[in-house]
């Protein structure tokens, strides 16, 4: 094992070993797990909590497939460590609907507009849409505005056209008396 010199010395020793116990509020539940301090948030969600909607497309913060909501904000979960989420809130797409038969209005909008093909970027796109809606956009975004807002998440299948429509449709659905987004 490539042991770290630092682990034996005084100041760093205070911060404990290579493992930590964290308690995270994930999808409206507190979960407590022991994690390796180098485990990324994405791997923690996927491997420890089984939230496999969090997809790893690049692991260097460029594709956006692993986007989750961290304290309500969209973040790349491959660029955070699991230990950093102790005491914080994380949402994945499983928080909207876990059951394919009971889709959330945002997911309904994506289904209606075929705003997906292979599904790999889809959880990220859905969560980003949720954030767009929640950040108080009362007005339906224009085509160009939606494109700008979702440009941090790559989709290789759709050419984005149907995703743009889905985001706009989701805005209408959530404004028009649908379930709270």
């Amino acid at each position: 094992m490539t042991t770290s010199k630092a682990s034996t010395t005084s100041i760093a020793a205070k911060y404990g070993t290579a493992r930590r116990t964290v308690t995270v509020h994930v999808n409206e539940r507190d979960v407590t797990r022991e994690v390796s301090t180098r485990t990324t948030l994405a791997d923690f969600l996927r491997d420890e909590l089984g939230l496999v909607s969090v997809h790893l497309g690049c692991e260097h913060g460029e594709c956006g497939s692993c986007t989750v909501l961290f304290d309500g904000h969209s973040v790349r979960s491959c660029l955070m460590l699991a230990v950093q989420t102790d005491g914080h809130t994380v949402e994945t797409v499983e928080s909207l609907a876990g059951n394919p038969a009971e889709l959330h209005p945002i997911q309904e909008a994506f289904a209606e507009e075929q705003g997906l093909q292979c599904g790999f970027c889809t959880p990220a796109m859905v969560l980003r849409t949720k954030e767009i809606i929640e950040t108080g956009r009362d007005r339906e975004l224009t085509d160009a505005e939606v494109r700008h807002e979702i440009s941090g998440i790559l989709c290789r299948c759709t050419g984005y056209q149907n995703i743009v429509r889905a985001v706009q449709s989701a805005q209408r659905r959530c404004r028009g008396g649908g379930r709270d987004a």
Binding site: L51, V52, S53, V54, H55, T92, V93, E94, L96, A97, G98, N99, P100, A101, L103, Q107, F110, A111, Q114, L116, C118, G119, F120, T122, P123, V126
Partner: peptide, 12 residues
């Protein structure tokens, strides 16, 4: 195909 993909169960 879409409902399962939309809830993150693509089975990759």
């Amino acid at each position: 195909e879409d409902p399962r993909l939309l809830v993150g169960r693509g089975g990759y």
